[in-house]
Simulated assay, not measured.
Amino acid sequence: MELAKVLLEHGHAVTVVFIDHPSKPPGLAAAVDHVVSSQPSVSFLCSLPLRRVHALVIDVFSFDALDVDGELGVPTYAFYPAGAAALAVYLQLPYMATNIPTSFGELGDTPLEFFGVPPIPASHLSREMRERLESDVYNAALSRWARLPDDTDGILVDTFESLEPRAARALSDPGFPAGGRAVPPVFCVGVVYLCFGSAGVHREEQLLEIATGLEVSGQRFLRSFKPQRTRRPTAVAAGVPTLCWPMYAEQKMNKVFVAQEMGIGVEVLG
């Protein structure tokens, strides 16, 4: 919703379309009702109003919605919340996969050389990228990232250019190795990204303290219920170092970016 607020500030009308999914986390309905009631300037629908859509913004978990833009004939933008360096890695993986004889999972801790980011051990890639070559999960993930340069008009990424200058420059470099395809324009739209992961549990008083702190900070923030990414913007804004404790998804890659590339954190070992 913080992204929606930014778009509203620039004079754009915003419509959020809910996708009905068979897996509904507990409390989701109440959370949706709260968001709807607290955002009177945003329209909320369960289907697309075909004649009113001027652009689509999809998140990284909804890349299949790219099929819709061809029918609507409107610009489509992807929103990626995990930073420019991780985005650069994933956009290069489909091209890299065609040049290695085995799966990434079989490479173990072998360092993978990427354009614009530090070397990443193959074991640090997300689980779906370490599946067997014949895995449907692996091939579906690879296919989604392969089509992103061709099927979007731009990518919104949650970062600041000053925080990830090398990765940001790489994404706009004409020589970026994306299998001969040009990467669409990348826009850095950094906000405070607050995420506790799908397993994050807090007491009521803790949630109250968090909400109070966010309110008095006066900063835009993004509260996510998706698997946890990194809270780099929060730490940088506060002027404190980051402790990297990677557990799943691309958190191991983020640990490399934060500790080695940016130099703003250290890894928790043991």
Score class of each variant (00 low, 15 high):
residue 2 E to K: 12
residue 4 A to C: 12
residue 5 K to A: 14
residue 6 V to E: 05
residue 9 E to N: 14
residue 9 E to G: 13
residue 10 H to N: 13
residue 15 T to P: 00
residue 15 T to N: 04
residue 20 D to A: 10
residue 22 P to S: 11
residue 24 K to M: 13
residue 24 K to V: 15
residue 25 P to K: 09
residue 25 P to S: 06
residue 29 A to T: 13
residue 33 D to G: 10
residue 34 H to N: 14
residue 34 H to V: 15
residue 35 V to S: 04
residue 37 S to Q: 14
residue 37 S to N: 09
residue 38 S to P: 06
residue 44 F to S: 03
residue 45 L to N: 01
residue 45 L to W: 00
residue 48 L to K: 02
residue 53 V to T: 08
residue 57 V to N: 01
residue 66 L to C: 06
residue 68 V to Y: 01
residue 73 G to N: 04
residue 74 V to A: 05
residue 74 V to Y: 01
residue 79 F to V: 09
residue 79 F to D: 05
residue 81 P to T: 02
residue 85 A to L: 02
residue 87 L to S: 00
residue 88 A to Y: 00
residue 88 A to C: 06
residue 95 Y to A: 11
residue 96 M to L: 15
residue 117 V to K: 00
residue 118 P to G: 04
residue 124 H to A: 10
residue 127 R to D: 13
residue 127 R to T: 15
residue 128 E to F: 15
residue 130 R to L: 10
residue 131 E to Y: 05
residue 131 E to I: 08
residue 131 E to V: 10
residue 137 V to C: 10
residue 139 N to K: 07
residue 140 A to S: 14
residue 144 R to W: 09
residue 144 R to M: 13
residue 146 A to N: 08
residue 158 D to V: 08
residue 164 E to G: 02
residue 166 R to Y: 01
residue 170 A to N: 01
residue 173 D to F: 08
residue 178 A to W: 00
residue 180 G to Q: 02
residue 183 V to H: 00
residue 186 V to M: 02
residue 191 V to N: 06
residue 191 V to I: 10
residue 194 L to P: 03
residue 205 E to L: 09
residue 207 L to G: 11
residue 207 L to C: 13
residue 209 E to L: 14
residue 209 E to Q: 11
residue 210 I to V: 13
residue 210 I to K: 03
residue 215 E to I: 12
residue 215 E to S: 12
residue 215 E to P: 03
residue 216 V to A: 05
residue 219 Q to N: 11
residue 222 L to F: 12
residue 225 F to Y: 11
residue 233 P to T: 09
residue 234 T to L: 13
residue 234 T to G: 07
residue 235 A to C: 13
residue 239 G to P: 01
residue 240 V to A: 07
residue 241 P to L: 08
residue 242 T to C: 15
residue 242 T to E: 06
residue 244 C to V: 10
residue 248 Y to V: 14
residue 251 Q to C: 12
residue 255 K to Q: 11
residue 256 V to M: 04
residue 257 F to N: 00
residue 257 F to L: 05
residue 261 E to T: 05
residue 262 M to A: 07
residue 263 G to A: 07
residue 263 G to Q: 04
residue 265 G to C: 04
residue 265 G to W: 00
residue 265 G to H: 04
residue 266 V to N: 08
residue 266 V to P: 03
residue 267 E to V: 14
residue 268 V to P: 05
residue 268 V to I: 13
residue 269 L to K: 15
residue 269 L to S: 12
residue 270 G to R: 11
